[in-house]
Design a protein around this nucleic acid. Structure first.
Lengths: 242, 242
DNA sequence: ATCGATTAATGCTTATACGTTTTTATGGCT
DNA sequence: AGCCATAAAAACGTATAAGCATTAATCGAT
């Protein structure tokens, strides 16, 4: 197999990932130390280290220094995924407008799924976040809390892809749109919509959640496009994600 | 500082990307070889290799072996993005059902955008692909041509995120669903829907394209779920694409 | 002119030595 | 006995060099 023959380090990386899954390692668990892995995978130390550092970049493990240190299982975070996403989008000359369109596409369905699947814990977290959002309605923290609400809703949808994409989009847009906040009127408008979405979710009304969310994100996009055309034309750039 | 040192490879990777963009390197251009880069970025060999390996996985460069080889500028392809996506989704225990739900969410909007923005070249390609699909209606190539049609529609939407996600989802599902094809009846049904979508796109009827596409993907998901519940419960696994 | 063998350039892997960081143990001083 | 400082050990981190494997370019014979 020519495809498999190349890149021994990557093979080792995949083997380590398989091992993590097979042994059901949780985040925080310690993996065998380098010396044991050397014997296990029968490679040189430099090769093993390349595999480990590669996995570290991907967020699969963390490498702890010093005595008693070693590779520790981590969990790939949204940040790592967002980094990959922004890199490829940069090469495709993607602008903020495209990201907003994607959000328009997924947010309504996401809300509908959340209405069906949100757990009580999810609902409590959403309630808390909404209350916080009302307290932040006139502070600089509004945008951040707003993003957090959408993130929570994404993870409450019971579909990891929604939560992942929503969080990733927020990470990408945060760097671009940091200088521009919503007006007081727009904030009030968004709060109203969010309240309706939250209420629909609480009532397990999937259709209502979808409709109100659709209205919300569409309005948000139109607001940003009208307020600052050059902002939504900004190109995504791969920045230091962490 | 160990924390800063850990990100050194990413800094180098960013520097290389900046260099590519600043010098307007095209795909196929050769970058300086390892020895020169070592002097230029003043890092250890392992660090540089880590940066190169990272960029290789992201598809920014290709590492060619042998004489006249070295780092060559490439263009990030969907395959590379799909690899990152599958890695993180594996750790989130994502199953095929979640991927289908995501497709349900984005495909209708994607079709609507394509109806507005598709160029004549896009339309011609879609026509060709549809004709091919009718010829393939009773062969094993149907599924693949079907995927290609959706890919084309994604790129015709004028929004790279739609094309990217659609193609990535196809790469992820291809490995899982390879053993299960559509029935003749389901194929006929999908062909009918696709014809309606294509027609709406041709007429610049965004709403019609959205509705017909919604019907199509919803039907497809229901068909798969009914036909093979254990299939849609299969978990995404990293390591297939690449 | 073409095809095959040779050669050279390059990345890949291994091997070894030394440096750094953290924990642990020791030991002398109060 | 208790406590702080210093040394040792255990692990990862960095650096360098050498040989291996792979492939493109080159050369030569037919």
């Amino acid at each position: 197999m020519p495809a498999n023959k190349a890149k021994r380090a990557l093979q080792v990386a995949q083997a380590i990932v398989s091992d993590i899954q097979l042994n059901a390692r949780e985040a925080g668990d310690r993996l065998p130390q380098e010396e044991d892995m050397l014997a296990r995978y029968e490679v040189a130390r430099a090769t093993l280290r390349e595999a480990l550092r590669f996995l570290e970049l991907q967020g699969v493990i963390q490498l702890q220094l010093g005595r008693g240190g070693g590779p520790v299982v981590s969990r790939p975070q949204t940040r790592d995924f967002a980094s990959s996403l922004s890199l490829i989008l940069q090469f495709m000359d993607t602008d903020l407008r495209a990201l907003l369109e994607l959000r328009e596409a997924i947010a309504p369905d996401m809300a509908a799924r959340a209405a069906v699947r949100a757990t009580n814990a999810d609902l409590a977290a959403l309630d808390d976040c909404y209350a916080q959002l009302e307290r932040d309605r006139e502070t600089a923290a509004f945008e951040e809390t707003n993003r957090r609400f959408h993130d929570l809703l994404g993870w409450a949808s019971g579909n990891p892809t929604f939560g992942l994409l929503t969080s990733a989009l927020h990470l990408l847009t945060r760097d671009l749109a940091v200088e521009l906040g919503y007006s007081a009127q727009e904030r009030a408008n968004q709060l109203r919509c969010l309240a309706r979405v939250l209420n629909a979710v609480r009532l397990r009304d999937a259709d209502g959640a979808r409709r109100h969310m659709e209205r919300l994100v569409k309005g948000s996009s139109e607001y940003l496009a009208a307020r600052s055309p050059e902002l939504v034309s900004q190109k995504v750039r791969w920045g230091d994600p962490g």
